[in-house]
């Protein structure tokens, strides 16, 4: 082998040579195209028959605010149900117990495999099959009075969400290195302690982006509840435009609120992600392959 030489630049480059970045032609071209499209859309909207004053008048109308609030409430509650069901479902799907595994798989199959709207209508019309609901030792109730739009909505959205969350949590749990469970067991942790203290915190970090995604889908999916007359955002603007026929204006009001709520949620998500990721953030390994 040749003897080692001192590493240095070729002779024709002196120390003052500048390193020029690669030209970014694509960037300028794409900017021009996008600006042109935006300009075209802007002109179209400006010339279109939209009463912006109507949009402005209704954006903070009490009925609309109540609808936006109801959308947030039903989404958060349904997500809470979905998270609980999802956690249980994921543990069942990963269990050694074949009965639990099969049950959870069937749950995921049925509730992911049928349209959310159909599930919602079935819950809402449950009284047609079971006119009364009897809880042994508690009493019997008229199904119609129990199955309010809100209850039907919670069941429809929450149970459906649980099926998706089952798969997201399962992915999170599988994603935790197998050595973690082994190390926890070697310390003498019971399966429950190992899951709670070692596996779950790491699984949640993996599951967070998928969970956030589900929440955004759920937030918008809650507009389906307008079918069962739950006064969420879409139904509350529909009540107004059925009276004044300003359909597009009020749909734009709803659009603005959906965007705003989602925006706030993304901020919250970033905060949670930063907190859960504090142990890995300090290393730059995430950036390395994202750069």
């Amino acid at each position: 082998m040749a003897r080692a030489t001192v590493v240095g630049g070729p002779a024709d480059l002196d120390d003052s040579s500048l390193v020029l970045p690669r030209p970014r032609i694509g960037r300028y071209l794409s900017a021009i195209v996008i600006l042109a499209v935006l300009a075209f859309l802007g002109v179209a909207v400006a010339r279109g028959n939209i009463g912006w004053d109507v949009v402005g008048r209704y954006i903070y109308a009490p009925g609309v605010l109540q609808g936006a609030l109801n959308t947030v409430i039903i989404s958060v509650l349904s997500m809470a149900i979905g998270i609980v069901l999802g956690l249980v479902g994921a543990l069942m799907r990963l269990s050694d117990n074949v009965v639990a595994r099969t049950t959870a798989s069937a749950y995921v199959w049925v509730f992911r495999g049928t349209p959310q709207l159909v599930q919602l209508l079935l819950w809402y019309n449950l009284a047609l099959i079971f006119p009364t609901i009897v809880i042994p030792g508690v009493g019997s109730y008229d199904t119609n009075s129990l199955m309010t739009p809100m209850v039907a909505g919670l069941l429809g959205l929450g149970i459906n969400e649980g099926a998706y969350m089952t798969e997201i949590f399962r992915g999170g749990i599988i994603g935790v290195d197998a050595g973690q469970a082994r190390a926890a067991r070697a310390l003498g942790m019971t399966p429950f302690t190992a899951f709670r203290r070692v596996i779950l915190p790491q699984a949640l970090r993996i599951a967070l982006p998928g969970t956030s995604n589900q929440f955004v889908i759920l937030l918008k999916g809650s507009s389906l509840l307008s079918i069962v007359q739950y006064t969420e955002l879409l139904y509350s603007v529909k009540i107004i435009y059925d009276r004044n026929y300003a359909v597009v204006e009020l749909l734009l009001v709803a659009t603005a609120w959906y965007i705003a709520i989602t925006g706030v949620f993304i901020l919250i998500q970033n905060l949670i992600e930063r907190r859960l990721g504090r142990s890995v953030r300090t290393t730059s390994n995430r950036r390395m392959w994202l750069a």
């Binding site: 290195d177 050595g179 973690q180 082994r182 190390a183 926890a184 067991r185 070697a186 310390l187 003498g188 942790m189 019971t190 399966p191 070692v198 915190p201 790491q202 970090r205 142990s279 890995v280």
Partner: peptide, 23 residues
Amino acid sequence: ERDAARARRHIGMVFQSFDLFPH
């Protein structure tokens, strides 16, 4: 596995891959 965990308490183990809890 619960009872086995109790028996493992007095046996320490160190792994090739360290397996510290990263969080």
